[in-house]
Amino acid sequence: MHAYVLLKTPTEPLVLPEGTVGCLQLVGNEWLSVVVEPDLSLAALQQDDALLLQAVLAHDRIIRALFCQTTVLPLRFTSFSPIDSLLADLHQHQQRYLEILNQLEGKAEYTVTLTPIQQPETPISPNLTGKAYFLARKQQVQTQHAERQRQREELQMILATVADCYPYKIATLPETESQQIHILLPKVEEDTLWQVASAFNEKFPRWQINLGEALPPYHFVDSDS
């Protein structure tokens, strides 16, 4: 059995999307429920690479579809448990799960991608030779260093401004100088965030700042959930 999200037991029926190989079900108690796919097992995925890829893609699709309907606590792709263990976990940690869901109520995660803008180098005249060339090259290196320093200063200003306004988590993208800021805020404040991102692009010309769509709160769930 594969579990996708944890949520408050709905008072109105949810529209459950298609699962990876079968239908989804809602299991739980009066207060909490988990959306599960009973017919999807970890053993089956370990034996079929194509099915594994299909399940990985379906996991995100299903979480997003449910997030559009209600507040959810996304579970890891590795969340495979027997029904008895799942219900026991709901009972044991009910208060903590309810507190997390209350904190996430009406909120979404927005990803801000910060990409450094590479400034063009000042070309060295091909007519320069000897000492004049080395002085020009030294000046070019100093200018590049100063530019990188100003770029780092702008990044720190961006992070400080975000930290003053929003709960956030940051990650450096692998093998790049780009960074991502994951921001949690009420969906009703989305327009304001777009305005902030637009203003940042004007205020910090050494960074390209792009704002993503509203997502489930993937980065704001306790690591042991």
Rank of each mutant, 00 (worst) to 15 (best):
residue 8 K to S: 13
residue 18 E to I: 12
residue 175 E to P: 06
residue 40 L to T: 01
residue 127 N to C: 00
residue 215 L to T: 12
residue 185 L to G: 07
residue 171 A to W: 09
residue 189 E to A: 02
residue 118 Q to S: 04
residue 41 S to L: 05
residue 80 F to P: 01
residue 134 F to M: 06
residue 135 L to S: 09
residue 215 L to R: 12
residue 186 P to V: 03
residue 76 R to V: 04
residue 190 E to W: 12
residue 137 R to G: 03
residue 167 P to H: 07
residue 164 D to E: 14
residue 37 E to W: 03
residue 61 R to K: 15
residue 138 K to F: 02
residue 193 L to I: 10
residue 176 T to R: 04
residue 82 P to R: 04
residue 159 L to E: 02
residue 45 L to T: 02
residue 165 C to L: 14
residue 61 R to H: 15
residue 143 T to Q: 06
residue 55 A to R: 00
residue 140 Q to L: 00
residue 197 A to L: 13
residue 55 A to D: 09
residue 82 P to T: 04
residue 109 E to C: 02
residue 46 Q to K: 07
residue 218 Y to P: 06
residue 60 D to R: 15
residue 12 E to F: 06
residue 137 R to N: 04
residue 133 Y to H: 05
residue 129 T to V: 08
residue 2 H to M: 10
residue 71 T to D: 11
residue 60 D to E: 15
residue 206 R to V: 05
residue 61 R to M: 15
residue 146 A to F: 03
residue 39 D to T: 12
residue 115 T to D: 09
residue 38 P to L: 11
residue 185 L to N: 01
residue 219 H to V: 10
residue 126 P to K: 07
residue 172 T to Q: 13
residue 105 E to V: 14
residue 110 Y to K: 03
residue 205 P to W: 01
residue 197 A to E: 14
residue 211 L to N: 09
residue 58 A to I: 11
residue 32 L to C: 01
residue 180 Q to L: 10
residue 193 L to G: 05
residue 188 V to N: 13
residue 33 S to L: 12
residue 109 E to S: 07
residue 103 Q to V: 09
residue 91 H to I: 11
residue 107 K to P: 11
residue 153 E to Y: 00
residue 196 V to I: 14
residue 9 T to P: 05
residue 13 P to Y: 05
